[in-house]
């Protein structure tokens, strides 16, 4: 039964256009992407200079990266991690524990966080990849739960349920702390851009083809000599490292981490929210989804006077109605609109 689940999971079409059309459109698309990125990077300078707005931009960037890491795994290899916070939180805690206990620069911690999360991914994968589909999802879910218990219990290392506050070095760039949030926001944007580039390059590489073959028809892929387990494990480790790196940035942006925000159910669901709101199987979907998700959450916070419960109620309801109406996400709506335009243009030719 797990086979059929992984097979028809991720039915979002990723049909590549013909090579000629692709090479014609690629430079324009790339230029557009760079332009959008530059605009995003410059937003704090001209549009939203205040601390509150930069904080929101920061969150959007973080959830974009987090959503991209989940989507790489689910969208392209069909492995649905219900507990993606296991990797996000592992990265956040590696970062926090490292800088708290050694006093060394968090810049080193970034690398360690990615490696630590990848190791968690590897361990999960070695067990979880004996099965696939929903079972895989449940094991990541349970891993997040277990790591949450560990973070609560190992008080000497993690500070327990009260969390871990990182030492202040305000204005010390060597310690990755700045006078404003803007530099950290720019760093996060660079990471997100890196994730986009990585996903894009993967999609047109042989490896990307292997990813999708494992998603669309594992039996046929196996018969064609594809090392299914190896491909799945590789994708899982890569995705985990990406989530861990973003988790480290998250911890550094707050200078605080606790078990609930690192490994909680909400944090796992957030990754899925961003990817699905944006639309599965599209490169920029998670970025769009992150913007919508963070803004919805802020609107919810505002209209409920900062009551987190009503905020969750608000954005969950909006997301629910949205997916019942538009299951293909924002990108799906966009495609439908542009699809109509393009078809018209084709007729005129």
């Amino acid at each position: 039964m797990s086979t059929d689940i992984s097979r028809d999971a991720g039915t979002a079409p990723v049909t590549p256009p013909s090579p000629a059309a692709r090479s014609r459109r690629t430079p324009a698309k790339a230029a557009g992407a760079v332009l959008v990125l530059l605009i995003c990077a410059s937003l704090p300078l001209w549009a939203f200079p205040d601390d509150y707005s930069v904080g929101i931009l920061m969150q959007i960037a973080i959830y974009a990266g987090y959503g991209l890491s989940w989507h790489l795994l689910a969208g392209y290899t069909g492995q649905y991690a219900f507990g993606h916070a296991a990797f996000f939180g592992a990265g956040a805690y590696v970062m926090a524990i490292f800088s708290y206990h050694t006093g060394l620069s968090p810049w080193l911690g970034l690398g360690l966080a990615a490696i630590g999360a990848a190791v968690v991914g590897l361990l999960v994968g070695l067990i979880a990849l004996r099965v696939s589909g929903l079972f895989f999802g449940l094991i990541t879910f349970g891993t997040a739960l277990m790591l949450g218990v560990a973070a609560n219990q190992l008080v000497g290392l993690t500070g327990g349920a009260a969390g871990l506050s990182l030492p202040l070095h305000l204005g010390d760039a060597g310690m990755m702390q700045f006078d404003t949030q803007v530099p950290l926001y720019e760093i996060t944007l660079v990471i997100v851009a890196g994730y986009l580039l990585l996903t894009w390059a993967l999609l047109r590489s042989r490896l990307g083809l292997l990813f999708r073959s494992v998603r669309d028809d594992p039996v046929a892929a196996d018969a064609s000599g594809v090392n299914i387990r190896g491909v799945r494990l590789g994708a899982l480790c890569l995705s985990a490292a990406m989530a861990g790196l973003i988790g480290a940035i998250y911890a550094q942006s707050l200078l605080f981490i606790d078990p609930e925000s690192a490994f909680g159910l909400t944090q796992s669901v957030n990754a899925i929210f961003t990817a699905i709101i944006g639309g599965m199987g599209s490169l920029f979907g998670p970025v769009l989804g992150a913007a919508v998700f963070v803004l919805l959450r802020e609107v919810g916070m505002t209209i409920s006077d900062g009551d987190g419960v009503y905020s969750v109620l608000f954005y969950s309801t909006v997301v629910f109605v949205f997916i019942m109406v538009a299951p293909k996400g924002l990108v799906g709506i966009g495609r439908r609109l542009f699809g109509l335009v393009r078809r018209d243009a084709g007729k005129r030719e």
Binding site: F82, V269, V312, F320, I323, P327
Partner: peptide, 16 residues
């Protein structure tokens, strides 16, 4: 619907 839509729909419903 595809599995990811089912998944997110019932998760959201549960959150609601």
């Amino acid at each position: 619907e595809p599995h990811e839509i089912q998944l997110i729909a019932t998760i959201t419903l549960s959150a609601i």
